[in-house]
Amino acid sequence: MDEKPARDAAPDCCGTSHPTKESTQMTQGNSTTAGSLRISPLPLEAAELNVWTLMTATQLRDLRADLIAALNEHTPAANSRLADIPERMVLVATELATNALKHGLPPTIVRLLRTRNEFVLDVADHDPTTSPEFTETRPVDGGGRGLHLARAFALDVGWYSADSTKHIWAAFPIVDADADAS
């Protein structure tokens, strides 16, 4: 399934135009899923906080450390207790970036964005001709679990293709739900 990018969408740091929910047109009917992963652009109000460009898997270590530092920097002091959200985000970012490095075309672009209540990870590769798919038949130690982990750990997960890139994004809460309940 392919998406036609919005003609009036603004390019991001990668030169990629991002369609809005209102302007995204599907080329195959009203379908909104690909292997159970919802086709959806990023939340409209997401503001970019950090960007990492990866060419090889050896850069994943720096991504993990930099992502933790960025999350700490961009977490409001009043809501500084994120519990395990940073660890979950690092795991999902690593898995999605590894998938992009392994199955997509370089460079892999990882972005940290923020809405009012969520952090959003956006991982892009430069192969918009393929769709992300869940693997159901591999053994547990056989890899291919990045999308499953993203769906299990994130509030919401989606993907879209625009111009020369394919993006998979995952949203995480800024405020720890346990902290709000107390």
Rank of each mutant, 00 (worst) to 15 (best):
T130S: 09
L91G: 03
H18C: 10
S164H: 10
L96H: 09
T98K: 02
T24C: 07
D141F: 09
A177Y: 05
N72K: 14
G35A: 07
G29P: 06
A34D: 12
P107R: 01
S164W: 05
S131H: 05
I109P: 00
T137A: 11
P139E: 14
A124S: 15
R138L: 11
T129E: 12
Y160S: 03
R38L: 11
W169H: 03
T16M: 13
A152K: 14
P132S: 07
L71T: 00
T24L: 15
L101G: 02
R114Y: 00
L82C: 08
L60R: 04
N99W: 01
D12H: 08
H18K: 06
I168A: 00
T16F: 05
S164A: 15
H74T: 09
Q59T: 12
L121C: 06
R114F: 00
E118I: 01
T130F: 05
E118G: 01
T108F: 05
N117K: 05
T58I: 08
R138I: 14
V120L: 03
M89F: 06
H126P: 01
D12Q: 06
A6Y: 04
S161A: 09
A171G: 11
T53I: 12
T135K: 13
G143L: 03
H74P: 01
T75L: 13
K102I: 02
D125A: 08
K166F: 04
E73W: 03
A10K: 15
T98N: 04
D62I: 04
A124V: 02
A57L: 13
T137R: 09
T33N: 11
K4E: 09
D8R: 12
D127K: 08
G142P: 06
A46Y: 03
T94Q: 09
H148C: 02
L37G: 05
I68R: 04
G29I: 07
R64V: 08
P139N: 14
S161F: 03
E95V: 06
E95L: 14
R81N: 09
A124E: 11
F134D: 02
A179T: 10
W52C: 08
C14K: 04
F153L: 10
L37C: 10
T27P: 00
S40M: 12
E133F: 12
R38T: 14
D125Q: 05
A70L: 10
V51S: 06
N117S: 08
L121Q: 01
D125L: 07
R88L: 09
A150G: 04
L91I: 13
G104P: 07
